[in-house]
Amino acid sequence: MSEIVFSETAKREIEKILSRYPTKGAALLPVLHLAQEEFGVLTEGVRAQVARVLDLPPAHVEGVVSFYTLFKTKPTGRHVIWLCQTLSCDLAGTRSLLGHLERRYSLKPGGTTADGRFTLTMAECLGGCGTGPAMMVNWDYHDRLTPERVDEVLKKYD
């Protein structure tokens, strides 16, 4: 396994994060976000490196990473679709979008398209209930979705 090192910019950012908290441990979530941005996936090696940088037991970092749904430990397609399945969006038509994603993109929850472009993950309430169904693609939020709107939005992600 090649060694995982944070870039100089990331190292400076970590210093900044550490200065905001009275304990090193409190920097864990922000540093994990940063690591995910930097390396794409929080692999075992990345998690170990985060533990080293923050002087935390590796098992602690493992426990934290596995608790939160937005931390990625496995490779995904190039873009992750987070489709809201909670009540208001379900009423507004999540199921029609699911059917569409399956028919048009052969995409099922948890799955990735054959070309590696999209992974579909079901999400819980994204705070867009009034304009549902809602989804995020990576960190971009999209709402008032219909099958046609989904096609339009997904075009923007290669």
Partner: peptide, 20 residues
């Protein structure tokens, strides 16, 4: 980082302190 329970005030504090 994605966990409804972190809206509960003491879970939220745990999360700021860098825990589950």
């Amino acid at each position: 980082a994605g966990a409804y329970i972190c809206g509960e005030e003491t879970a939220l504090l745990e999360s700021i302190e860098g825990r589950r």
